[in-house]
Design a protein around this nucleic acid. Structure first.
Lengths: 231, 231
DNA sequence: ACACGGATGGCACTCAGTGCGCTTCCAACG
DNA sequence: CGTTGGAAGCGCACTGAGTGCCATCCGTGT
């Protein structure tokens, strides 16, 4: 693996210390390198811009995701596969909960960081869309479906991720993301392999759903989930 | 209305002339203001940053969209409403096809402009999501559904918009966007005005699904889709 | 010991963006 | 008609991010 450059970590630590105690815009590169005890030029050797120091591991995570998708064969259901790919991002956030929460609070109030985060998220979305475009090749409206599903997966993932970050990492991130992605899968793809709802084992227990044709699919699913005693 | 500041238009014209003939990054603010014959400081009075001159009318369009959504009552179906709101953006692009195509080519190759465009699109998406959150208030997973649907609408709109821009404005932008948004509506909301799937009007037409509890969720949905005659 | 290559530091430079004070112009008001 | 007050524009100096270039340091192989 990439050996460990202690300088990079030192820069991240120094940067976050200053960002948290005096704010992002109030901290200059010179402040960071002075605290880290390195030369100014070295900062830009490890991070192409000031924003990059806030997202030090997304580049690696994006590489992981593209690798994960590139080894996918046809045996996996496409929507399921991109949902699993999205979970890789969650895993990265979950490896350092306190760091993630601190960063969340930072990006929430600094417009420049929010904009940068968007470009990072966009690259994840394009990776998912590219994979789906490949799987949907030849299908009618394949690229449209790929783009829409990728966007929906990212939105669901982010919705759950932000809810978890707002709880200071107290809630169960995995469960929240599973639930959110489950919604997308019921809307677009074949449902998940292990459904999120608990499975009762009583074979006599039956549910009857009646729906007029013309009702939207999500309403039907919602009725069924309610009948199953979800939530 | 805002009277017309000729200076603003002169700056946009000068900027695009230089951007097209020598590239965005190769053009400095001083070049622009020199060509426009105005002071450097005046540029930043009309545009807070160099990127803003590339998207001179998005601020107004975003205001139009929020206004459009804020006057919406409960008489409109929510998903239909946000699709109509998205069409406002298309209309703006369609008012100046050649300008839009030039800008598209510019943003396609300049990473900084792509990033800025993302933040613009993000604000549209948040406007749609905020509206849907209001309409879905109280509904189970209301904010999740709002975020996902807003993202899907934006993705579909952008897919069609880009396809139109790539055709140099030759194709029918409205038809492409209608088609793309129709896909989202069939997935999430009530079917579009001219539904993609034929709608039976017989009110007696009902579907009864019987499922033993314990069956996996995907089997249930599969049964329902089959009963609806989908796919 | 010496040569070499990668990692680092120092320095000067460009350019985006900001704060401030000055001029200019126009319009309302006496 | 003259004054005044505010908005629009201009000039200038300054900060800070990001870059190119070259000197330096250090570990390694010969």
């Amino acid at each position: 693996m990439s050996s460990k450059p202690p300088m990079r970590d030192a820069l991240v630590a120094a940067a976050f210390q200053l960002f948290l105690e005096r704010g992002y815009e109030q901290t200059t590169i010179d402040d960071i390198v002075a605290l880290a005890g390195v030369g100014r030029r070295s900062f830009f050797r490890y991070f192409p811009s000031k924003e990059d120091v806030v997202f030090p591991d997304h580049e690696r995570c994006l590489a992981d995701m593209t690798a994960f998708l590139s080894v996918s064969g046809d045996e996996h259901e496409p929507v399921q596969r991109v949902c699993d790919a999205a979970r890789l991002v969650l895993r990265m956030y979950n490896e350092n909960p306190t760091f993630s929460v601190q960063r969340y609070r930072l990006t929430k109030k600094v417009p420049g960081l929010r904009a940068y985060e968007l470009s990072v998220v966009w690259r994840y979305e394009r990776a998912l869309a590219a994979y789906l475009r490949g799987r949907f090749a030849g299908r009618r409206d394949g690229t449209l479906q790929a783009d829409v599903i990728a966007a929906a997966v990212v939105a669901a993932h982010n919705n759950a991720l932000r809810s978890w970050l707002r709880s200071d990492g107290q809630r169960d991130a995995g469960a929240e993301v599973d639930h959110a992605l489950g919604y997308v899968q019921t809307a677009f793809g074949h449902p998940p392999a292990q459904p999120a709802v608990e499975q009762r084992q009583d074979p006599e227990d039956v549910v009857v759903v009646v729906s007029r044709r013309g009702a939207p699919m999500w309403r039907v699913v919602q009725e069924i989930e309610a009948a199953f005693g979800r939530d």
